[in-house]
């Protein structure tokens, strides 16, 4: 038997809670069991079988919260086969085991290190240059895109099981991530430039120069693995000191 469409939608909704009980031992294990449970309930009408299935999905699991939806979908695909006696009970687990690392890498690499920071920088630039409508628009586009991908991956996992890899490979997400990272770096540069122009206009040319010097020093310091928080305090206090100095020099004239 196969899982009805309404149940699949319910599982997808529950995938959004995958990390609710992230814990040190099982990581997303409870979240995974919570997400897949509606499907298991459909597949195993015998309570003992359902409990056994739930228990095996409580094994340690960790993936990226977006790409994990492909694994939840694929695990249902395999559980359908287990319920039909076409596959041993270890099948869904082996699937989860093999895919969790690589799909975490795809998700971390594309979403966390590419798409989300790109949209973060875009939203920041939009806010600075155009105000809140640009912020709302950036967030809207990000979420339409990300939820569509989450849903598509879930469906692809469910329909095609192991073949989801082929579908995922066709999206060439790592190549897109590289482009987004380049584009994001440009956005940050534009923000620094706009910030410098605006500081020069509001306070004076010295303040604009200070912003650019701080950006350059920041790039170097962070490149040498300076910690963010101390670097932030250093920038704040040095910037304020330069400002005080500028005030004294101007006042003395």
């Amino acid at each position: 038997m196969s899982v009805p469409e309404a149940t699949l939608r319910r599982v997808f909704w529950r995938c959004l809670f995958l990390q609710a009980a992230w814990n040190r031992r099982g990581m997303q294990n409870l979240g995974f069991a919570y997400a897949i449970d509606p499907a298991l309930r459909r597949l195993y009408s015998d309570p003992a079988l359902r409990s056994a299935a739930l228990r095996r999905h409580l094994g340690a699991f960790s993936c990226h919260p977006y790409t994990a939806s492909a694994i939840v979908g694929g695990a249902i695909h395999h559980e359908e086969r287990v319920a039909a006696g076409q596959e041993p009970v270890a099948g869904p687990l082996a699937y989860k085991q093999v895919l969790q690392g690589p799909l975490a890498a795809v998700g971390d690499g594309f979403f966390w290190a590419g798409l989300r920071p790109f949209f973060g920088a875009l939203a920041a630039l939009g806010t600075l240059a155009l105000g809140w409508p640009a912020l709302v628009a950036s967030l809207l586009v990000y979420n339409v895109l990300h939820l569509w991908l989450r849903w598509t991956l879930f469906r692809a996992g469910y329909r095609s099981g192991d073949e989801v890899l082929t579908r995922l490979a066709a999206l060439s997400l790592p190549a897109w991530a590289a482009r987004l990272r380049d584009a994001g770096s440009v956005l940050c540069g534009v923000i620094a430039g706009i910030g410098a122009l605006s500081a020069a206009g509001r306070i004076g040319i010295g303040a604009g120069a200070l912003l650019l010097v701080s950006a350059a020093a920041g790039v170097v310091a962070l490149g040498y693995r300076a910690r963010l928080l101390p670097t932030t305090y250093a920038a704040l206090s040095l910037g304020t000191a330069v400002g005080a100095l500028a005030q004294v020099v101007r006042g003395g004239r």
Binding site: G184, C188, A199, A235, G239, T240, V242, A246
Partner: peptide, 25 residues
């Protein structure tokens, strides 16, 4: 207030740098 305004400018500069670094390109 005025020197702290310069401090904010330095923070914005650092933030842009941290953003660029975060892309690890």
């Amino acid at each position: 207030s005025v020197p702290l305004g310069w401090g904010w400018t330095a923070l914005v500069g650092l933030a842009a740098a941290a953003g660029a670094r975060a892309f690890r390109s």
